[in-house]
């Protein structure tokens, strides 16, 4: 794997990196930077931005900026954890299914099809209703549901790679499972998987927001960005800025992730050794 040349970083990548660095700072230090607590009611609902409250107040009169800073850890943390876990489940199983073929592949693929045929929100509601909405359950549910998509992608990518002659050479050499997965398939499947990672990360944000809307996501009083968009949405009816701030942060992080992913993929979008 060659690293992209530094010193010739495109502007978009600089921008994306800055956004991600900012997100990381918020993730680590957000609550410490917040001027107010996330539950403190400080004034009228939907108060206009002022010197004391640069982003104004939300529907319950809480400081918008403080809630954004507090919510960073929750939002980024839940999405990141869910996506990382879903890739840790989906990628190895998808590769394995493609490599083994036959019955394991058939059962795995059909099982995933069944899960995917049920709308994600419904599956998530059932699980969260049954087990109660706690953070581990929330992350685990999103991760498992998302891993079906990752499985499908990983499987189809690996199917294209195992028929390549270099993979055949490895089989002829009697290579074990670990080598096949780690050295032959993974490096060649990486670019599309990375692109998918960036997208899945953003979807997870929105999914948490959707669950919060139904009262099954991040539970109050904890702030999360998706939940804040929902809480403030009636503000749109009155022409207020309030919902734009959390929505804007989600959009910004989404763009940042994708800019960095694009940059990492630049020049190596070929898969399966098509560099002739």
């Amino acid at each position: 794997m060659t690293l992209p040349v530094f010193g010739r970083i495109p502007l978009s990548a600089v921008f994306g990196t800055l956004i991600l660095a900012g997100t990381l700072v918020l993730f680590l230090f957000g609550p410490m930077l917040a001027p107010y607590g996330q539950e403190d009611v400080l004034g009228m609902p939907f108060a206009e931005p002022s010197a004391a409250h640069p982003l104004g107040l939300d529907q319950n009169g809480r400081d918008m900026m403080s809630r954004l800073l507090h919510g960073a850890r929750m939002s980024v943390g839940v999405s990141l954890a869910a996506v990382v876990i879903s890739f840790c489940i989906g990628v190895p199983l998808g590769f394995l299914a493609a490599l083994r073929g036959g019955w394991p592949d058939l059962i795995g693929a059909r099982l995933v099809d069944i899960v995917m045929s049920i709308p994600v929100l419904i599956s998530a509601l059932v699980v969260l209703q049954a087990l109660g909405s706690s953070l581990p359950v929330l992350i685990g549910t999103i991760a498992l549901l998302d891993s079906t998509r990752v499985f499908r992608l990983a499987r189809i990518l690996a199917q294209g790679i195992v028929v390549m002659e270099y993979a055949e050479v490895a089989r002829l050499r009697g290579e074990g499972l670990w080598w096949m997965l780690r050295r032959e398939i993974l490096p060649n499947a990486l670019p599309p998987l990375m692109a998918e990672f960036g997208m899945r990360f953003c979807f997870a944000f929105l999914f948490v927001a959707g669950l919060s809307y139904l009262g099954l996501g991040v539970q109050p009083p904890f702030a999360d960005w998706g939940g804040m968009v929902r809480d403030c949405q009636q503000g749109i009816l009155y022409g207020l800025y309030a919902p734009l701030f959390p929505a804007g942060t989600i959009a910004l992080v989404t763009i940042g992730v994708n800019l960095v992913v694009d940059w990492a993929l630049a020049g190596r979008t070929t898969i399966q050794g098509e560099n002739r």
């Binding site: 002659e165 270099y166 993979a167 050479v169 490096p187 070929t270 399966q272 050794g273 560099n275």
Partner: peptide, 8 residues
């Protein structure tokens, strides 16, 4: 081209 793993 296809007999060599491009990442090794």
């Amino acid at each position: 081209d296809v007999a060599l793993n491009p990442h090794q």
